[in-house]
Design a protein around this nucleic acid. Structure first.
Lengths: 338, 338
DNA sequence: TTGTAGGCGTTATCAA
DNA sequence: TTGATAACGCCTACAA
């Protein structure tokens, strides 16, 4: 059933039916009701291709996932996407997801724009210097960044957590407990978020006059194994750290395992603080409810970004930015330095 | 740049340019080259909306993810999607991903079909009795199932692993080691794969004349915590199992943790076998390389399903089915019953 | 308040 | 081998 059939069935013009369905004010309420009912009864839905062609809006937002950056195979990503997807549903918008080889990323953006596949993009995992913003800005396509990019030259829409401030607070929190030898198990520092966390960490250390120990600073893809191996190694140092600051709960889980394996107790012999993106499938809440963390919901970030995206499509010129402050949740993994 | 502009630039008709670009044989090689070069130079890409309207093919496959079934927030899902996505790229096809509330699932399929959003669907996580197949079959939409559904009435395209056979082998493997008290930590048995695994498990137990102990059989959403808690409980039984069969590496990780916490050694005091979907982000290979497992790659399954999907779109009547046999990889988590 | 007619960018049919 | 021309299904001035 298409518009033509539906309207001839109703004895109305396509125009009137279209207007009735799209909520135009000039249609009489009586006609509108009749149209809406008939549409529902016959299961009429406008063809997205036709509508896209006519309006220039295709009702889809692009999410491009370069494989090999571990974005896809990664719970942080999934949780965020769930939030985005649920919010899009309210707008009748779809996710067009494109998974591509890493070196095809920019080309993929270009193709999707040229072929008019989407009305805009959500960018995830921004780097310190990220070429995507420039590309999309010169192409004139609306986009929203989850995170920020320190190297950006023009204003752009973004939603970020205050990574720098969060790690300042966490570091200060540990210092207040008397810790001076603090390890940093950061994410990859080409990523903007990790760059900012490192910055926050160093700012507070230096402010407190604590010498930086580069051998306690790590920057890697976040995984359980990474946490386990690094923690195992540094706990075996002649002068081991008394506290560890982790970039992800995944990493912290590995750290906790290493601490246990070393016969130590977290919160007593070693303090652990982690950034907690608060995701569900590992059941980490139940497993290790006790880790002190900076918490921010990726799911909620996703829904918010989706709303910002819709606004950006409606008004390509307006810029909106948001920075969220993570909550510091004190658990049992932190305590006074022995 | 659109077709009209490109063709007038070339001094050719739109028809000829379109034909040249789409590989029609009647175009002279010389013209074709000229067209292809100009198209590349100007970055021309056909509008998908227009093409979709003209051909009826929109170049997109639907993946509908009901939230709350833990599909999205789940590494099994991600790994499979990565494979699918990479394979689609070769066909110039996109994933249209729709995340919806659980009770909206069937309605969402209907809407996407009616609005002509996609050329077909990939179905994941089929239940023993799954209404989706019937729906899509009556709507006449091509689809491929990753997995199977025992309750299906009509033939359909699917790719599955031999879950029943795999668990038969695993169970026999443990029995051969002298184990008789074997726990089953299965996935949710409304899911077809879990149903089949249970069946395989029971078949072999009964064939060997080993009494079934229902208090050692569990069926839940697969997570680390599930494995940990169940294993902790059953190891404390007066008559604990000497072996455990897990539905997922996530579950097995929890089991291993519980075994360690109980001061036992896997492969010595307790044998553990797991289904291993072989995903990467947890770095489980490095962390626990030793668990005996039935292994099958979700990523490869994804690429295969994508190819089957493309074939199904080209020939909506042809049915193709595939069943893969997982590999039994013997690790150190299994040994003779003490 | 409703209808007519043209256009969105392709592909497909038919003729040259 | 190429080119007019008519769809594809919808939206939207403009007219009534």
């Amino acid at each position: 059933m298409n518009l033509k059939e539906l309207s001839s069935y109703l004895g109305l013009s396509q125009t009137t039916v279209s207007r009735a369905l799209n909520g135009f004010p000039e249609v009489s309420e009586k006609t509108r009701q009749r149209v809406i009912e008939a549409a529902k009864a016959h299961g009429y839905m406008p063809s997205q291709s036709a509508r896209g062609l006519a309006t220039g809006r295709v009702g889809a937002i692009g999410h491009i996932i370069p494989l090999g950056k571990h974005q896809m195979i990664n719970p942080h990503f999934s949780d965020f996407m769930a939030g985005v997807g649920i919010a899009y549903a309210d707008f009748g918008v779809d996710i067009v997801m494109k998974i591509c080889a890493q070196d095809q990323e920019l080309a993929t953006y270009r193709k999707m724009v040229k072929s008019n596949r989407v009305d805009g993009f959500v960018l995830q995992g921004p780097l310190v210097d990220d070429p995507r913003m420039d590309l999309l800005q010169t192409m004139g396509v609306p986009f929203v960044v989850h995170g920020r990019s320190a190297g950006a030259t023009q204003p752009y829409n973004f939603l970020d957590v205050d990574n720098e401030g969060a790690f300042e607070r966490a570091t200060q929190f540990l210092i207040d407990f008397g810790h001076r030898d603090i390890a940093l198990l950061n994410g990859l520092e080409t990523m903007d978020f990790a760059h900012k966390r490192r910055k926050g960490f160093l700012t507070v250390l230096q402010g407190a006059g604590i010498p930086v120990r580069p051998e306690l600073m790590f920057s890697q893809d976040m995984s359980e194994v990474y946490g386990y191996e690094v923690a195992t190694n540094i706990l075996a140092l002649p002068n081991p750290p008394s506290a560890m600051l982790c970039a992800s709960k995944l990493v912290a889980l590995g750290v906790m395992r290493a601490i246990a394996d070393a016969g130590l107790v977290a919160g007593k012999h070693v303090s652990v603080v982690t950034f907690d993106d608060d995701f569900g499938f590992l059941g980490t809440h139940a497993a290790v409810p006790q880790i002190t963390c900076l918490r921010s919901s990726l799911y909620r970030a996703g829904t918010r970004v989706a709303h910002m995206m819709m606004a950006a499509v409606d008004d390509p010129l307006g810029i909106s930015t948001e920075i969220w402050e993570p909550e510091l949740v004190v658990g049992k993994s932190t305590g006074m330095k022995l």
